[in-house]
């Protein structure tokens, strides 16, 4: 197994209240230094609630946001956007909102053509053949090509978005909440399509979602993000079957499941990002929190084989 994607101490800080000259008024640490690896052909699921920094992380990985510190390596080479064409052939992105990721004033053909022309230099017959092939792969009818984005339902628009990402023939695809805007019956279609495409084109996925059940259904390994840090990571079946971080456990217990009584526990809310607490960010909501949690930030450490957790008092398996 080779490493497809590697992030080392990747962090992003946003300046709030920028001034023309001088330092900003405040800073928000959207992503604290995080490190992880994705093996070739693997799906890494990233789970977290809104505001945990998962989209910021994704946008850094595809070069849409410059990281404040840390480094990204793709297939052993540092991320380099100097040649956009070479970069686009390595990694692509599928957006959360399928409709707003398509330019309303362009036809689907114009949208799909762009990566094929610019990244692969296709013209004429070769271009038409490749478009037909892509549309076939995502189960869309060829007559859609001359239509405009607003004529499509969410599920169809997301297939178009996936086709555009695949048009670049990337090695890695970052999927940022690709199904959260879709209805459940369509969501399953798109998830299955993604699984088929992965096998067919030998892709590596980074799958971001707030929905634990969805992530579990598609991922080999899982990283749980909370307040900009990875709090737990490990093989998918272990992380949810035997969560070691209290936050992962809270997430798993909060998912509505038929037949389980409502958990009425007051589980609190995210800390204020402008004024983060010292120590563990989850301490304010954690039933196991002790003095050390409120003073010292826990490091991510191995608890059992390939399962890592950032907690001073991890749960027993």
């Amino acid at each position: 197994m080779t490493i497809a994607l590697k992030a080392t101490d990747l962090a992003k800080t946003f300046d709030i209240g920028k001034r023309l000259i001088g330092p900003p008024r405040a800073q928000v640490h959207a992503v604290h230094p995080v490190s992880f690896e994705v093996q070739t052909g693997e799906t890494l699921g990233v789970v977290g609630e809104s505001g945990c920094g998962k989209s910021t992380l994704a946008r850094m990985l595809v070069g849409l946001l410059p990281p404040t510190s840390g480094s990204i390596e793709i297939e052993g080479r540092a991320l380099d956007r100097a040649d956009p064409a070479a970069f686009g052939r390595l990694i692509q992105y599928v957006f959360q909102d399928p409709v707003s990721s398509l330019n309303p004033r362009k036809t689907i053909r114009q949208i799909i053509e762009v990566p094929l022309r610019l990244l692969h230099g296709l013209r004429g017959k070769a271009l038409d053949d490749r478009i037909a092939e892509l549309f076939d792969a995502v189960n869309l009818r060829p007559e859609f090509l001359s239509r405009y984005p607003h004529e499509f339902s969410g599920g169809q628009a997301q297939r178009i978005g996936i086709a555009r990402a695949l048009a670049a023939s990337p090695r890695i695809v970052i999927l940022d909440e690709p199904v959260s805007a879709l209805d459940v019956s369509v969501q399953a279609q798109v998830l299955n399509l993604l699984a088929d495409l992965k096998a067919e084109f030998n892709l590596t996925y980074l799958f971001i979602s707030h929905d634990l059940a969805v992530v579990e259904a598609v991922s080999d390994r899982i990283a749980v993000l909370y307040f900009g840090s990875i709090v737990e990571t490990g093989p998918a079946e272990k992380v949810f079957a035997a969560p070691r971080h209290p936050y992962t456990s809270l997430l798993a217990d909060s998912a509505p499941v038929v037949g389980r009584p409502l958990g009425g526990a007051q589980s609190g809310e995210l800390p204020d990002p402008l004024n983060p607490p010292p120590g563990c960010a989850f301490a304010g909501r954690c039933p196991r929190a002790s003095d050390v949690c409120r003073a010292k930030v826990p490091e991510l450490r191995a608890v059992e084989g390939d399962q890592f957790v950032a907690c001073h008092h991890p749960l027993d398996p």
């Binding site: 169809q156 459940v184 019956s185 579990e216 259904a217 798993a252």
Partner: peptide
């Protein structure tokens, strides 16, 4: 529709989908 909804604890799998659109 119930079969479409992934439930936690099912592990990695192919999901049941309903073909077509509403």
């Amino acid at each position: 529709l119930i079969a479409c909804v992934p439930e936690l604890g099912g592990g990695r799998r192919e999901l049941a989908a309903i073909p077509g659109l509403p």
